[in-house]
């Protein structure tokens, strides 16, 4: 994996995410065993696979919530978590890692809204705190985003007063408030009651239609087929198969993909 340093070719401009040979272990357990992935700007990439296949871990590596052990990840041409100078890697300071994360929005399975803040405060907190916008502008933008996810009438509510679907839509608005160039979704509908899944998926479709680059870890095959531009099937820490979602889903080439799809479809 160290030979990567020898070829610092800058990724093509239209590539939003480029991962090369990403390895990650938790103790003796190797969760990612060399993931290569390319996501173009404006593309919706769906990560599919059985639980424990490493898809959530890989997603968390993209914004450096997890430190990778080997390989490289670039987002919009910037190496994530490290600086490369003279063929040597330097760990980034917390401050610089935080700055990189601002351009990458993330939506969690369990929403993780800030329960002590109202919906509006949840959305405008980061832009105001990180001085991305004046308070009045941030409030206006936050109200716009909440209106867009269909929660324009819930600005003063606390997360505890909302349904799961509503909370997840607030979480999406909160991530969008930082005006990210990439959005990561970590099983955004897995913690929801079945009848609430639709409203969150609709919000995500809307986002995809607007040209947002998205990487979505999901079990929603229907979403992957309808909205996805690219489907990646992972199992056991490696990419087993990838390609056009409609082709992979209707005619999987690999045995493990076939077995998985047979179970979830």
């Amino acid at each position: 994996m160290t030979d990567m340093t020898a070829s610092p070719q800058t990724p093509a401009a239209e590539l939003m995410v480029r991962a090369e040979q990403v390895h990650k272990s938790f103790g003796p357990l190797e969760v990612l065993k060399g993931i290569d992935l390319e996501v173009r700007s404006g593309e919706v990439c769906c990560l599919l696979g059985p639980s424990g296949s490493g898809k959530s871990t890989f997603l968390r590596c993209i914004n450096h919530l997890e430190k990778i052990d080997a390989g490289r990840i670039w987002v919009d041409g910037d190496l994530i978590g490290y600086r490369e100078r003279g063929g040597k890697l330097y760990e980034m300071r917390d401050r610089d890692v935080a700055a990189q994360r601002r351009a990458i929005g993330m939506v969690f399975q369990r929403f993780n809204l800030f329960p002590h803040m109202t919906v509006l405060q949840n959305v405008m907190e980061a832009p105001v705190l990180l001085r991305q916008a004046k308070k009045t502008e941030a409030r206006e933008h936050a109200a716009q985003l909440l209106d867009r996810v269909g929660l324009g009438d819930k600005l003063g509510a606390y997360p505890g007063q909302l349904s799961g679907g509503q909370q997840q839509r607030v979480a999406i608005a909160r991530a969008l408030a930082m005006r990210p160039k990439l959005m990561l979704f970590d099983e955004p509908t897995s913690a929801l009651d079945p009848e609430l899944v639709g409203e969150v998926l609709d919000t995500m479709k809307d986002l995809a239609r607007d040209g947002m680059t998205m990487i979505v870890v999901t079990h929603e095959i229907g979403f992957a087929r309808e909205v996805g531009d690219h489907l990646v099937f992972m199992d056991g820490g490696v990419v087993v198969e990838q390609g056009d979602p409609r082709e992979v889903i209707s005619a999987p080439k690999h045995e493990r993909t076939k077995a998985f799809l047979a179970k979830v479809l």
Binding site: N63, L65, D94, R95, A98, A99, Q100, R101, R102, I104, G105, M106, F108, R110, N112, L113, F114, E125, A126, L129, L130, A171, R174, A175, M178
Partner: peptide
């Protein structure tokens, strides 16, 4: 406080001190 709170704040790009103080 749930670990997810820190992660969500980190993902938004807040610093350690900001997360501690605000979240």
């Amino acid at each position: 406080v749930d670990e997810g709170q820190t992660e969500a704040a980190q993902a938004l790009g807040m610093s350690r001190a900001q997360i501690l103080r605000r979240i």
